[in-house]
Simulated scan of single mutants.
Amino acid sequence: MQVYSQKTGRLEALLLDEGILTELRTAAVGALVIRILAAPKIDMIGIVGTGVQARYQLEMLSAVTDCRNVLVYGRTPQKVDRFISEMTSKGWNIKGTDSPDNSLQDTDVIITTTPSREAILGNSSLETRKSGLTIICIGADAPGKYEINPNLVAKAALLVADSTTQTVQRGEFQKAVKDGLVKKESLVSLGHLIETKDLHRRKEGDNRLIIFDSSGVALQDCVVSSLVVRKLN
């Protein structure tokens, strides 16, 4: 990442982070949204995917919840086993599942982190449990990618995205909008969510299904870069 001065335009720093800062800022957004939108008491976290970002999401979550119970789904048993072994050593209580839709009934928060181009979550059962559920969608970061059945997206009481313009072009909600299941005007930006406390998850009796999509925006890179430069100085 290249960091320039807004006053002079001069290059102030060149951060050779090898993509780590991108991973961190993506995980930080997930944790921020969970702090705002998840139920006050989280008993089980669902993870769909076993890659690098799945690991970062869990590590960042430790800053916003005491829950250490995780239900994970991966494409192969070998990847699930490696994920469980690594994250268990870091203090997480993890068990695998052979169906991602088990998370819809058994967890309070679900984080999807795969590069899928077809629905992984919400295929066998589109009914969520009666208590509130928050889904964080991380993997859909390019045109054609989506991880959630559009019919499940359409059932959400609140749809939030870091960029409402970008999410219908290269984010989780693109197919639901294209299929006419969701209106673009109903999408809420992350900035508006943060400012509007009435949209936040209430402490009691809030049984909404809420879905957040992060396709990544430049502002996140600016913030994480400035934090690093400030720390180095």
Rank of each mutant, 00 (worst) to 15 (best):
M1Q: 07
Q2F: 10
V3T: 10
S5N: 08
R10L: 11
D17M: 06
E18F: 09
G19N: 06
I20L: 15
L21S: 03
T22D: 14
L24Q: 11
T26R: 10
A27V: 11
G30C: 12
V33K: 02
I34G: 02
R35P: 00
R35L: 10
L37G: 03
A39K: 00
I47K: 02
I47L: 13
G49P: 07
T50N: 00
Y56S: 13
Q57Y: 05
L61K: 03
S62E: 11
A63N: 13
T65Y: 10
D66H: 13
V70K: 04
D81S: 13
R82T: 01
G91D: 05
G91I: 03
W92M: 07
T97D: 02
D98T: 15
S99L: 05
L104W: 04
T107M: 00
T107N: 01
I111S: 10
S116E: 09
R117L: 03
A119Q: 09
S125R: 11
S125L: 07
R129G: 14
G139I: 08
A142R: 14
P143N: 05
I148W: 01
P150I: 10
N151H: 15
A154C: 08
A154P: 01
A157E: 12
V160E: 03
T165V: 08
G171P: 02
V177A: 13
K178I: 06
D179N: 13
L181V: 12
L181I: 12
L181A: 11
S186W: 05
S186E: 09
S186Q: 09
L187Q: 02
G191P: 04
R201T: 12
K203G: 05
D206H: 08
I211G: 01
F212M: 03
S215C: 15
V217Q: 11
D221N: 13
C222I: 15
C222L: 15
V223G: 08
V223W: 14
S225I: 11
